[in-house]
């Protein structure tokens, strides 16, 4: 692992969350799965960072490692000027409340045996903060739930979209600085998805949140993010501001991803740029045995001999635009 500061980490004093050289390994039987390897990024105050990639590439693992649930195998997570990976016990519990998480499956995120009101008040109760009915109702109405009729029900009486609202209310009750959303709309219908995305934008403005937004739907990520990080097989491929990544993707994998989006409007589709790209072929390699050098090389149409030998490091590809590829498509 390099000690050099990765170039994509910015020198700014409004950085809220900084993840440096993060790695997470899992022991599966006798093998070690490298779910996340040497990932670095930062998020500035009020920013939304989108994290995209295929299923199994380690997005959720990063989200959880930031929360120290479980702590990463290596690397640092700097939040409020502290490295969370060295904290433990009470200090960790305390710091962790500044970060909250929303999950993909809203139904399994809520304890089926508790009332909505208690679920939302839980964090406040734990920390002995104001958990009065008024406070709970305030967050509930902020997310568009009717406290009077919804408060005493149990989660299974609500639809997926409503459950997601409950989850959002629960995480907002603790007044976090950072909200980590792990595919919060993937399980929802398109019409409800729009409601939740709008709600997240509103809540971000109202509660001055900084967000890490994990998803595999690129249009959704573009809609909500200021910056985007693209992952493949546990590693970062490309990171930069949303406009740059979507209009001028330079990593072969990002191009392939963008080329696979079906567009709702057949007339507006700009086929010129992307449709000429060769399609992504083959299957994702196993993270237990990732390819040498560049992990994308087994499916990369531009792979050359150097890609198998040497691992590509992040390099600048433009203004706030970084790519890890030996032969970026500049």
């Amino acid at each position: 692992m390099t000690d050099k500061t990765p170039c994509q980490l910015r020198e700014r004093d409004d950085i809220v969350l900084r993840v440096a050289h993060l790695s997470v390994n899992f022991a599966v039987g006798k093998q070690t799965v490298q779910a996340v390897t040497d990932v670095s990024f930062d998020v500035a105050r009020g920013e939304t960072l989108g994290l995209v990639g295929e299923s199994g590439c380690g997005k959720s693992t990063i989200g959880r490692a930031i929360m120290q649930l479980p702590p990463p195998s290596a690397g640092a997570v700097i939040f409020r000027d502290q490295d969370m990976t060295v904290l433990s016990g009470e200090a960790l519990r305390q710091t962790r409340t500044g970060l909250q998480m929303i999950f993909q499956d809203p139904v399994s995120s809520l304890n089926p045996r508790r009332r909505v009101r208690d679920i939302i008040a839980e964090g406040l109760t734990i920390w002995g903060r104001d958990n009065s009915a008024a406070r709970v109702e305030e967050v509930m109405s902020a997310v568009g739930l009717d406290a009077a009729s919804a408060g005493d029900r149990r989660p299974h009486q609500f639809s997926g979209g409503q459950c997601q609202r409950i989850c959002i209310a629960r995480s907002l009750a603790l007044d976090p600085d950072v909200l980590i959303c792990d595919e919060p709309v993937s399980a929802l219908d398109v019409s409800v998805q729009a409601q939740i995305l709008n709600l997240l934008e509103d809540m971000k403005a109202r509660y001055h949140l900084t967000m890490v937004f994990i998803a595999h739907n690129l249009a959704v990520v573009k809609n909500i993010s200021d910056r985007v990080a693209v992952m493949y097989l546990g590693k970062l491929c490309e990171i930069g501001n949303t406009e740059a990544i979507y209009s001028k993707p330079v990593h072969p994998y990002t191009r392939a991803l963008l080329a696979s989006i079906p567009d709702a409007d057949p007339l507006a589709r700009e086929q010129a740029l992307l449709d000429e790209e060769p399609l992504l072929q083959g299957e994702l390699p196993s993270p237990a045995d990732p390819p040498s050098g560049c992990r994308f090389r087994t499916r990369c149409p531009y792979a050359q001999e150097r890609c198998a030998r040497e691992e590509p490091f992040m390099q600048a590809a433009g203004d706030d635009h970084f790519v890890a590829c030996h032969f970026p498509l500049l």
Partner: peptide
Amino acid sequence: QREYVLAARAMGAGTLRILLRE
């Protein structure tokens, strides 16, 4: 495995509280 247990830990719930409540 359910996420509500994870969510409780994220909110700072202690082990005993998670065992008893969740």
